[in-house]
Simulated assay, not measured.
Amino acid sequence: MADTTIKVDPAVRDRLQELARDRGITMRDLLAQLAGATPTKEELTQRREETKAYVEEHFLGGPYTEADAKVGEQLWADVLSGRIGEVQ
């Protein structure tokens, strides 16, 4: 494998080195893991479309609408705020 140089600020280099050391790996391996685990815009779009198709098929029985999105957003807000599961 051929090496290449990536120029970053010293603070970024130090941070990457600390993260790698904490994981017991080299900075090379850390960067490879970060690159492999970070999806591109195209990959995110593909995941969104696949997820939408799954939800439509298995939960909605039809198209995912703006109303569905609003219900989901409210549900997520309720989960984050702790309102889901409260005794009223």
Rank of each mutant, 00 (worst) to 15 (best):
T5Y: 14
I6W: 03
K7T: 02
D9N: 12
A11P: 01
V12A: 14
R13V: 08
D14E: 10
L16F: 10
L16N: 06
Q17H: 12
Q17F: 15
A20W: 00
A20P: 00
R23I: 02
I25G: 00
M27V: 15
M27C: 10
A32H: 10
A32P: 01
A32L: 10
Q33N: 11
L34D: 11
A35F: 14
T38L: 15
P39L: 11
T40Y: 09
K41E: 13
E42F: 12
E42R: 15
E43Y: 11
L44T: 14
T45S: 10
R47C: 15
R47P: 00
E49Q: 12
E50H: 10
E50Y: 04
K52C: 01
A53Y: 06
E56D: 03
E57S: 08
F59Q: 06
G61A: 02
P63Y: 01
P63S: 05
Y64M: 05
Y64W: 06
T65W: 00
T65H: 02
E66F: 04
A67T: 04
D68V: 00
D68R: 00
K70V: 12
K70Q: 06
K70C: 03
V71I: 09
V71P: 00
G72R: 04
W76T: 10
A77P: 00
A77Y: 04
V79P: 00
S81M: 03
S81Y: 12
R83M: 04
V87C: 03
Q88I: 15
